[in-house]
Design a protein around this nucleic acid. Sequence first.
DNA 1: GGCGTGACGTCAG
DNA 2: ACTGACGCCACGC
Length: 113
Amino acid sequence: MSSHPVSGSFRARVLAWVRRIPCGRVVTYGQIAALAGAPKRARQVGAILRSAGAPLPWHRVINRHGRISLPQMGGYEVQRALLQQEGVHFDERDTVDLLRFGWRPSPHGSQSK
DNA sequence: GGCGTGACGTCAG
DNA sequence: ACTGACGCCACGC
């Protein structure tokens, strides 16, 4: 009924949710895991994104502190550039304000913009 | 098919 | 606020 991908493998559900993240917004690994039906598997979300070859807005997924988890020279710069390019703001502590840029899909059918 | 690694998150100290 | 231990388990070798 709802647009929630509640079927398929955990991996498939994770990718489905990530594809839904709107441009200019971010979501945490834990959020994706919870949306995919397994709140304790935040760590696996990272592993899945790492191996996901298909076109995917993987850069819109960050950690619960609002910071990029990838190491410098290991993807950090790329992810940050992609986000800033979409208008996501990083403060002086390299942190994104989740209250402003965090995306939280409504459990109903409405759109959260 | 076992095993080490690790894009996370939570909790105790 | 910071640190370490641990649960969780996908992925690659």
